[in-house]
């Protein structure tokens, strides 16, 4: 006769312990790493950018709530994902006093409703939702998105305290691209202005310093990888050095006369490389694939900046590379243990 064994013990397959780094925790950490940049933008450009940010986040979270409720799915409004999407949408809005609030709202709604949930919700989207939202409103309200760059409002106070001397209503990249006279080039903000964030631009891209610091913290916490930012920034630096010489008075610029440091510090490269191109869902899962993804982002960004119609190419570069992710993952597999090279890559 067999005994019966009963108990209320929990039985599950191994492993029985788990990391503490859950997806929501990662999302909140990324958001936290971006907050200093937003706060700094608020300080430099005035409280309106904080309002834009709050509105973008609110719209994203509300959209998430409505859709999950309508689809009768678990309510994931507070898992940090929608918050981060809204925050990144705000980062991609120009820090301009005239930006109507329906622009960030539309961007956030498009990001959550179309880019994320229409494709199946978290983990299923092929495109970075925040960038999809940005590109949508970029084409829908082009003047609002590209004109009227705000002059750093607290400029006088800050500059008298610190000795910085930037003042421009054209973004540095605008000057780099369309300025043809040496005099115009001399109006470019200095490296330190770019580094500390005394330049016109989008809300989330003002200070390279704060973005690099936030990005490095996330890398140290193993929340984002280092491969993509490194490959992206290095490629952008290399290409802007080789091909990015300034065309003064219609002359063809010489090779190797570009200013790589200026290129990588200005515009959205730091924001894109550390916070957008490292999005888990829309980037390759393998090491080699990530290197290639970063290189591709760098090439497209510089291509758009130097020869395209637009001044800035970060968001398009990342979105175009998002499209290639399935292909990259098919081509760049990890070698399997105990399987020779060719067979392992098959």
């Amino acid at each position: 006769m067999a005994d019966t064994f009963t108990s209320d013990l929990i039985v599950s397959a191994a492993p029985h312990i788990r990391t503490r780094l859950s997806m929501p925790r990662a999302m909140w950490f990324v958001s936290a790493a971006l907050l200093p940049s937003i706060a700094w933008a608020g300080f430099v450009f005035g409280v309106y950018v904080i309002l834009v940010t709050a509105v973008a986040i609110f719209a994203a979270m509300l959209t998430e709530l409505c859709i999950t409720c309508a689809l009768k799915r678990p309510v994931t409004m507070l898992d940090g994902s929608a918050f981060l999407t809204g925050l990144l949408v705000a980062c991609n809005m120009p820090a301009a006093g005239v930006l109507p609030l329906y622009v960030p709202i539309t961007a956030s709604v498009f990001a959550i409703a179309v880019a994320k949930h229409a494709f199946g919700g978290i983990g299923q989207n092929w495109i970075n939702p925040a960038l999809a939202g940005r590109i949508f409103v970029f084409f829908a309200w082009l003047p609002a998105m590209t004109g009227g760059w705000a002059v750093p409002a607290n400029f006088d106070a800050v500059s008298s305290a610190t000795g910085f001397d930037a003042l421009s209503t054209a973004t540095p990249l605008n000057i780099l691209k369309f300025g043809t006279l040496a005099a115009e080039h001399s109006a470019l903000p200095s490296y330190s202005d770019l580094f500390f964030g005394f330049v016109p631009g989008c809300i989330g891209e003002v200070s390279a310093l704060l973005l690099i610091a936030g990005g490095l913290v996330l890398i140290a916490l193993k929340i984002v990888n280092w491969e993509i930012p490194l490959a992206y920034i290095a490629t952008a630096a290399l290409l802007s050095w080789v091909f990015g010489g300034l065309a003064v008075s219609g002359q063809v610029p010489a090779f190797f006369s570009g200013d790589p440091l200026y290129h990588i510090l200005s515009g959205g490269i730091m924001l894109g490389a550390f916070f957008m191109a490292t999005d888990w869902v829309t980037t390759p899962m393998t090491f080699k694939g990530r290197i290639l993804f970063g290189i591709g982002c760098g090439i497209i960004t510089i291509l758009i900046r130097l020869t395209g119609h637009n001044v800035e190419g970060v968001s398009f570069a990342i979105v175009l590379m998002n499209i290639t992710v399935p292909l990259i993952e098919k081509l760049f597999r990890r070698r399997r243990f105990g399987v020779s090279g060719e067979k392992g890559a098959a």
Binding site: I10, S12, H16, I17, R18, M23, A26, T76, D79, G121, I122, G123, Q124, N225, W280, V281, T282, T283, P284, M285, T286, R290
Partner: peptide, 14 residues
Amino acid sequence: KAAIYRHTPCVRCG
């Protein structure tokens, strides 16, 4: 410590 955790969809972090 032994509680069976809820799982959510893959976010492709790799």
